[in-house]
Write a protein that binds this DNA or RNA. Structure first.
Length: 784
DNA sequence: AATAACTTTCTTTTT
DNA sequence: GAAAGTTATT
């Protein structure tokens, strides 16, 4: 099903002679002179500054292949860090094509996080962890923080867990220690975060767990504390490559500097204009100051664009010109002028989605574009819904990237929590997640008493469970807890010697999760059940494909670092839907950017500060430059947000842009109104009289008091259109869809009403005629 | 202790 | 309109 193997191989004992020089030169064929220059600069620091579509990754790939071919480096002396695991895998495949599979075996390629998680697994004992440590995602981290807030009596309403986590996380990204952070606090919220930061780190350590930020921080701590270990890695990786360098944070920057300090062979590729991850600590300064940090650096600029038409490039250029902070760079291309960029105006997000769907169909049928040539990009994941709806109705195959990925599904997280617990019983976040799922009589009260007991005795929650008898619980509760204890302990004792998949299968069976899912007898339940089965087979596959290191704990660490973008399925011929962020590094012949509205893109929160606004603009730039041949921009005059239809105003970005390359759908000229953007107050970028918090204000202000608001909510949808009901279980059941019923056979859905368990559909069956069915029980299957 | 019904709050983007 | 939190009911 899925590929779990990341691109990390251990050094092979056999050495291979470098390929003959003639082959090395062949690797350079097909590269532009500038690209070749970057490839040939093998020793010392190299900075490649490159615009979109200039062949950045290609240059890096060929450079690595060239290194191997001329015999400068053995594969295991190369570390290549990319933005996603998928990008790493693709790069590795291409290198294998260039120099042969054998010659490429042993290169380490992957994300910073995945690479250093591997390092930490090896060196765990040196930092007081075991190699089976758990890796915490945002969810797990917040679970820990929620517990701490309770203990320190911090009101989770006033200071929500989310913001506590993001403050702590950004402190960690900047490598600020708990002590330092305590000294730096400037606000009430920060003070609470500072109070939690230390205990949070302590809780993670006790749980033998690391969060994403720790995966970068711990290696730095280790390298600082233990120079011998650092030197071992410096000597191992003599050649460092970092893709998307503009998106590295301070910790990543530090790691790169440490590793490169000895041999100095650090080659980074990036484009400051494409920096879109400042919100999670990425520091544009890293790329801007590379030449200062490495005075001997060779700098190569790749400015020729091989991807897009002239018009698209001109549009992109007019976008990025609005930003103050940027390196001087001029993009050019030998490509054709191309089609005009089309701007589409829609009445609502439904209308917008429909227009996009029709355009795709039209280009597919008349332009001959296969579905895989299209991408629809948007600012927030929530926007995918209306687009999906329209595409589904139009019968256009699509795939949503991001959003709810396989590993984020509840049932998968539940099962993974059990598995993690067996491998690492001190993993408190997992323990608390599953201690009473499926319900086994350990309710809130009992849990609270256990936690209090653990705290009194200075034990971890698991240790407290090991000693239930002393916890002073009621007989019934104590029994339930010891049954749970037995369940975990029994499997934990087998973890070391049983194969991962057999152990997982047994454990899952014993937990009763499968029965619980089967019991609710709904289509969702069935789907969840299947997902769990799929996970089990994934574990088996992992164990089979990693004969030397196929343990359960290795599996768990690996899957916690997989992203949706890493998962397979990209060779399928489908339209791709994704956020603008997720589109980074990709290219498509036809690109749509939807939702160009004030408050949405740019987001309301980002319009206050020039730096934030510039990041939004770069995001627009990134999106526009994904397009090779055709680019469509769209906005809606109203949008369903916060549970209500809200009026919307078209994005200021559309007023900043070169209007000559844009045509309306009807072929008319686009009238940008740069005057609406008042440059007078450049720091905030006041826009007409549009309030940046448009939507929220509207929600509260326009509908008056709470009671009128509730009434407004109950009223029918304002656009008067028949609303299509979407529920998890019946997501496919919409008017027009052909379905099959166990008894009635095949039919066509005429209409749908109600929601949730009350959802009913009127279906016309070929054999038995029209029927009204309750979706919950009807078990309709979509066909065709 | 578990479930159902109701209320409130909140929304960016992600390794 | 969803998720998380709260209260009422069994």
């Amino acid at each position: 099903m899925r590929q779990y193997r990341l691109s990390f191989d251990d050094p092979q004992p056999t050495l291979h002679e470098p390929a003959p020089g003639r082959d090395a030169e062949a690797i350079l064929l097909g590269l532009s002179p500038t690209q070749q220059e970057a490839v040939r600069a093998l020793d010392g620091p190299v900075l490649i500054i490159a615009g979109p579509g200039s062949g950045k990754t290609r240059t890096l790939t060929h450079r690595i292949a060239y290194l191997l071919a001329v015999g400068k480096a053995r594969p295991w002396q190369i570390l290549a860090l990319t933005f996603t695991n998928k990008a790493a895998r693709e790069m590795k495949e291409r290198i294998e094509k260039l120099v042969g599979e054998e010659a490429a075996r042993g290169i380490w390629m992957g994300t910073f996080h995945a690479a250093f998680a591997r390092v930490l697994r090896r060196e765990a004992d040196k930092i007081g962890y075991t190699r089976d440590f758990s890796i915490y995602d945002t969810d797990d981290s917040q679970r820990i923080l929620r517990g701490l807030m309770e203990r320190y009596h911090i009101d989770p309403k006033r200071y929500n867990v989310r913001s506590m986590h993001s403050l702590i996380s950004s402190a960690k990204n900047r490598m600020v220690s708990p002590q330092e952070y305590g000294r730096l606090v400037a606000s009430d919220t920060q003070e609470k975060a500072a109070q939690l930061y230390g205990p949070y780190q302590e809780a993670l350590r006790r749980a033998n767990a690391m969060d994403f930020d720790d995966l970068l921080l711990k290696p730095i701590e280790l390298f600082e504390k233990d120079p011998a270990t650092l030197q071992a890695y410096q000597d191992r990786w003599r050649y460092l490559h970092i893709d998307e360098y503009q998106d590295t944070n301070h910790a990543q920057y530090t790691l790169a500097r440490m590793l490169a300090a000895r041999h100095g062979n650090l080659c980074v590729v990036g484009d400051d204009a494409q920096s879109i991850y400042a919100f999670r600590g990425a520091d544009i300064g890293n790329i801007l100051s590379f030449q200062r940090d490495y005075p001997k650096a060779t700098t190569v600029r790749l400015e020729q664009n091989y991807r897009s038409t002239r018009r698209i490039l001109r549009l992109a250029d007019s976008i990025i010109k609005q930003n103050q902070d940027q390196l001087e760079k001029s993009l050019w291309t030998e490509n054709d002028e191309g089609e005009p960029v089309i701007l589409m105006e829609a009445l609502s997000e439904r209308d917008e989605a429909q227009k996009i769907e029709r355009t795709i169909r039209d280009l597919h049928v008349r332009g001959g574009y296969p579905f895989r040539d299209f991408a629809v990009l948007y600012r927030t994941n929530a926007q995918s819904r209306s687009l999906e709806e329209a595409l589904r109705r139009g019968g256009i195959p699509y795939q949503v990237i991001g959003g709810m990925s396989f590993y984020q599904r509840r049932e998968i997280k539940d099962v993974l929590a059990y598995l993690r617990l067996v491998v690492n019983p001190n993993d408190t976040a997992s323990l608390r997640r599953v201690i009473n799922y499926p319900t086994r009589g350990i309710g809130n009260k009992t849990q609270e008493e256990l936690i209090a007991f653990a705290q009194r005795e200075g034990l971890s929650l698991w240790q407290a469970i090991e000693r239930v008898e002393d916890a002073g619980l009621s007989g019934r509760a104590a029994n339930a807890v010891s049954a749970f204890h037995f369940l975990i302990a029994q499997h934990a004792s087998q973890a070391a010697h049983r194969p991962a998949d057999a152990l997982a299968r047994d454990l899952i069976q014993a937990t009763g999760i499968l029965e619980d899912l089967r019991r609710d007898n709904t289509p969702e339940g069935l789907m969840r059940w299947e997902n769990v089965q799929e996970l089990i087979s994934g574990i088996a596959e992992f164990a089979a494909s990693n004969p030397d290191n196929g343990s359960l704990s290795a599996f768990l660490q690996e899957v916690s670092l997989l992203t949706d973008a890493d998962l397979a399925g990209d060779d399928e011929n489908r339209v791709r839907l994704m956020t603008l962020h997720a589109s980074k590094g990709l290219e498509f012949p036809v690109v749509f950017i939807a939702g160009l509205e004030e408050g949405l893109f740019p987001l309301a929160q980002a319009t206050q500060d020039r730096k934030d606004l510039e990041e939004e603009r770069r995001l627009f730039y990134v999106g526009a430059t994904r397009a090779q041949e055709r680019l469509y921009l769209s906005y809606a005059r109203s949008r369903f947000r916060y549970g209500e239809q809200q009026p919307a105003v078209r994005s200021r970005f559309l007023d900043e842009v070169d209007e000559d390359v844009i045509r309306t759908e009807a072929g008319g000229r686009h009238r940008a109104r740069p005057d609406r953007f008042q440059a007078g107050d450049a720091s905030t970028g006041a826009y007409d009289h549009v309030d940046p918090h448009y939507y929220r204000k509207n929600l509260r202000g326009a509908s008056g008091t709470d009671s009128t608001r509730r009434q407004a909510r109950r009223s029918t949808p304002p656009d008067g259109e028949r609303r299509i009901v979407y529920d998890e279980g019946a997501a496919d059941i919409v008017p027009g869809v052909r379905v099959e019923h166990d008894l009635f056979g095949q039919g066509k859905v005429l209409s749908v009403e109600g929601r949730g368990d009350q959802a009913k559909a009127v279906v016309f069956f070929k054999e038995v005629g029209q029927k009204k069915l309750v979706l919950k029980f009807a078990r309709l299957r979509c066909i065709g």
